[in-house]
Design a protein around this nucleic acid. Structure first.
Lengths: 244, 244
DNA sequence: AATAAAAAAGAACGCTTGATTGTTTCCTGA
DNA sequence: TCAGGAAACAATCAAGCGTTCTTTTTTATT
């Protein structure tokens, strides 16, 4: 806190200052600034100014800049993991677990966009030792979903040939929401949860009716796609269909 | 380039130096270092050392650090957009177009991970004017998929209530592959394209047989999930089912 | 062979950065 | 009430940053 008022002598400990409160303010400001500018781009003077301190005073609250980042990311990951496990506790049906996981992940990411963004983007800014801790936590979190998919496949409810790949795919899709979601947008959180969860469930429960041929006739494929450097797909001949 | 050999007088222009070649080397080293350390974290001295130059000499090849980033990202986005349009050209059937887009996006991202990563992560490091250009290109790219989904929904092939949301979801999912894919892994590019494209098509073609009730009976949901801060979903009562 | 242009070296610049230290002020509990 | 610890300031440091400028060498052109 602090922030010297106009007619103060203006030195040293400021009136009403309180360690716990300042610590929390620093944490919040840190999240905000790292989210906005990135860890490397945020200077400690900038952070100190945001809280109303001198940069040197920050060192009462963290060992160094790197540890500030680590604390933020580690605490976030532990929170994410703990809350997910709590939400899933007691649910055994794979489909219900999948829906619960999906809904939890989406809501968590919509309400904590800054934390999530930092945890995903700034992993590379962590020193090796710190990164290892965070990656381990992330693995455990991914393991929750992977296990759900595995169980569902075993029960015959899901059609998932590669649970690991599907896990990465689903998590990427769900996490992507915080790249564009903004509170107060056209669609409510509930609506978005509905839409996304539908996509996840469709993907997990396997092919709908339309994979190969279709009842409704379609327009004919006119030209063969030209190679454009990425190498055109060697997949089986595209289904030639025609429309009325 | 350059890199004075042992018994040279060691000043100024180095033997065998060539502008075009150096420019290309700088570009490549730039991509490599930004990918590894991030734009802010990469210093021009680091970049110069990677190429075998002094930092000041770099300014023969770009206006400033910011423009180097912009050039890399802009060129990448234009390449991505152009190749996607080329791959889709001539295909009219929405399902075929969706598969083509999905396969293209995956292959492109698997073979150009560094460029893609940079374009996605360092947008915030671009100055406003530059960012606007890049975002516009990205919009056009997303528009390709959105239009495919819209057309497919209109034709009744896809069941997509919100093409915009589905577009973001699909692109996030596909792009996510370069967070973990490494060449030479257990699964080949073709296999991954198969898996991912299957997920995309299932999601677009709508609900499989398992959305609400299921032929195969499932285990009963034991406990109601406790609220864990994210607020338990207000969705309609979870389907209560029982297993043999 | 002479000359111009290209390519890079290398030194210097003004700034900002993360970090450290010593000092001053405020707060609180015995 | 008054000491002692907590909280913050103020000044400082060396290092590193992006950038500019001048000089030197190599290559290309005539």
């Amino acid at each position: 806190m602090a922030g010297r008022t106009k007619f103060q002598k203006a030195m040293a400990r400021t009136i009403g200052s309180n360690g716990a409160r300042t610590a929390e303010a620093i944490r919040q400001a840190g999240v905000k600034l790292i989210y906005k500018h990135g860890y490397e781009a945020m200077s400690l003077r900038q952070l100190a100014a945001e809280v109303g301190l001198q940069s040197g005073s920050l060192y009462k609250y963290f060992e160094n800049k790197q540890n500030l980042l680590f604390d933020i990311v580690r605490d976030h990951m532990e929170d994410l993991l703990g809350k997910a496990e709590a939400d899933l506790a007691g649910i055994t049906d794979p489909l219900a677990r999948l829906k619960t996981f999906s809904a939890f992940h989406l809501r968590y990411h919509m309400t904590r966009m800054a934390h999530v963004f930092i945890a995903n983007m700034e992993i590379r800014s962590l020193e090796d030792e710190h990164r290892a801790v965070v990656v381990a936590l992330r693995r455990r979190y991914e393991g929750l979903l992977e296990e759900i998919l595995r169980q569902g496949a075993e029960d015959g409810v899901f059609q998932v040939s590669e649970p690991k790949v599907a896990t990465y795919a689903i998590i990427s899709m769900l996490t992507g929401i915080c790249m564009w979601y903004r509170p107060g947008g056209r669609l409510s959180q509930d609506e978005l949860v509905e839409i996304y969860t539908g996509l996840v469930v469709d993907g997990a429960t396997g092919p709908g009716p339309a994979t190969a041929a279709r009842a409704k006739p379609l327009e004919a494929v006119a030209a063969q796609p030209r190679d454009s450097g990425t190498r055109a797909k060697p997949r089986a001949a595209r289904p030639k269909t025609a429309r009325a």
